[in-house]
């Protein structure tokens, strides 16, 4: 199954498989809109400990070039990363500000 972000738009019966079968990844479902608080990492204080990455229930923190990168398309804003950060370098900031 491709990590395709496109939604599938079936038009009619004939396009369906015989039984309910997944054809795309949920990566087609950006859950970022659920968020009311947004995690913001202060890179100056980050020690690249990977704790935020490891505990993300949504796989919404990527580990890129030895650094955490929050994927705001998907981050639901639970705040586990900020809570668990040993350096307290992730701030939860109100969305829409």
């Amino acid at each position: 199954m491709a990590k395709d972000r496109k939604k599938i738009e079936f038009q009619k019966l004939g396009e369906l498989p015989p039984m309910v079968q997944s054809l795309r990844s949920m990566a087609a479902n950006p859950t970022g809109s659920w968020r009311t608080l947004k995690p913001v990492i202060d890179p100056a204080n980050c020690i690249q400990c990977t704790i935020c990455w490891k505990f993300c229930p949504d796989a919404a923190i990527d580990w890129v070039d030895d650094n955490p990168a929050i994927n705001l398309d998907f981050c639901k804003g639970c705040g586990i990363c900020a809570e668990e950060c040993p350096k307290k370098c992730i701030a939860m900031v109100k969305e829409g500000k």
Binding site: M1, F10, L13, L16, P17, P18, M19, V20, Q21, S22, L23
Partner: peptide, 30 residues
């Protein structure tokens, strides 16, 4: 449509009223 690690799909997942009926038509036609 078998479970296959080289062509992974999920079977029988949550289906909304948008398509449930169409799968029932398919059973009836089968």
């Amino acid at each position: 449509y078998k479970l296959d690690v080289n062509d992974p799909h999920t079977y029988g997942g949550l289906t909304t009223p948008d398509w449930y009926m169409e799968f029932r038509i398919k059973m009836h036609e089968a």
